[in-house]
Amino acid sequence: MADKKIHEDQKYIEGLLQNNSFIIQAVYDKFVPKVINYIKQNSGSEASAQDIIQETLITIYNQAKEKNLQLTCPFDAYFFLLCKRKWLNELKKTNSKEVTINEAVLSKDDNALELADETELFEDKQQLFNQMFQQLGTACKDLLKATFKIKSMEEVAKSLGVTYAYARKKKSLCIGKLTELVQASPKYNQLYN
């Protein structure tokens, strides 16, 4: 990715990151109508479009925050592709019949395809991580929450009434436990090949 030029539409990503209402509004005004049209033409309603769009923007926000997302294609192409794939997945879940993809509106932009793939992978990982986190015991969950919220391990140890050394060790073992849960999941190979 490093050798690719960052697209000027990176401003939309930065705007989302800063929770800038004007930029979010601009995304709705400029890019959302196309998505609504597509979803409506493909057995969806306005309400389903609203959900798909919101979920997609949250994923983009998370990826930008966590992985420093750099846009190498127009925002429109990337955003539309993500919403479209999300909608088709939704249809597959609820519909037993074959879903037909309107190829005419598929993006021809390679950068957009590549970026959308990365975002999808990111989202799948997030889902898996969240599911596995829920499977941890309460003690691990509380310790990890405290560790990442408070930052200072000394304070974490104090707040949980344990020694510093114990808190540190426990943190690594809890993430270790989580690592094992993730690696044991059937989805693991799909996500890390």
Binding site: F129, F148, K149, L178
Partner: peptide
């Protein structure tokens, strides 16, 4: 990956 994920989730 999990370390970064947890950081984002809680921090």
């Amino acid at each position: 990956d999990l370390n970064v994920f947890l950081e984002q989730k809680f921090e």
